[in-house]
């Protein structure tokens, strides 16, 4: 079977005569979650909107969908979902996402986008709708379902769900690479104004104390590393 890919053509992003992002390009496949991190006003969301409106900038042999914080009336979400005759895994996913009543309309729109079964999903600022725990679940679910993701955020904590991380600073790509490798560039990230995600930071500090010997991305991993449980 042909491997699904997604390629964003190199382009410059300008607004009101100001260069927002220079020579941006990206390649990823269905097994990847790419995260674009940047401070507020760095043009990340604008980039996503431009990609949405100019489909010629994205070359892909898969189905590409966008979730740009749209809303959908969720007053009859149960009936609407029931009419879709989903399999057990999707049903469980929908129930888990929709059981929380905050931002229900955003949640429903997001769920419906995923139910269209994209090969690649472009989305932004999901931390605004979902808790950290829910986000971990969503990204792990997308990985299981082989949905490649291009995720735009200003939250360093969200980067831990990605496999590839790009960080923009003042219209330039400041650093990019495999997420875990980028997140180990502690000093450089600090210079960019970011601290490390909590569990990465905690494990680096505990490593210095000689209590653990590898980076941990979650409390479960940290507990196992600290008390050497298998």
């Amino acid at each position: 079977m042909e491997k699904k890919y997604c390629h964003i053509e190199p382009f410059n992003l300008r607004l009101f005569g100001r260069t927002i992002l220079e020579d941006f390009a990206c390649d990823f496949d269905k097994n990847s979650a790419v995260c674009l991190l940047g401070e507020s006003g760095s043009g990340k969301s604008l980039l996503l909107k431009i990609l949405f409106k100019n489909s010629s900038l994205i070359q892909s042999n898969g189905r590409v969908l966008f979730y740009l914080l749209q809303k959908k009336d969720a007053s009859n979400w149960q009936e609407e979902i029931a009419s879709l005759h989903l399999d057990v895994t999707w049903k469980r996913f929908v129930q888990k996402i929709m059981k929380v009543s905050t931002h229900l309309e955003y949640r429903f729109a997001f769920v419906l986008t995923l139910l269209e079964k994209p090969d690649f999903l472009f989305c932004e600022d999901l931390h605004w709708i979902f808790s950290a725990k829910e986000l971990a679940y969503i990204f792990s679910f997308m990985r299981k379902k082989k949905i490649g993701c291009f995720y735009v955020t200003n939250q360093i904590e969200d980067t831990v769900y990605s496999t590839y991380l790009m960080i923009v600073k003042q219209d330039k790509m400041a650093i990019e690479g495999q997420t875990l490798l980028v997140l180990q560039e502690e000093k450089y990230l600090k210079r960019l104004g970011f601290s490390l995600p909590f569990y990465i930071n905690m494990s680096i500090q505990l490593e210095l104390y000689g209590l653990i010997d590898h980076l941990c991305m979650s409390k479960e991993e940290l507990e196992k590393a600290l008390w050497k449980l298998k």
Binding site: E39, S40, N154, K190, G193, F194, S195
Partner: peptide, 10 residues
């Protein structure tokens, strides 16, 4: 929510 979207250094 002034601190919400600020960089950590900020």
């Amino acid at each position: 929510f002034f601190f919400q979207d600020l960089l950590d250094a900020e």
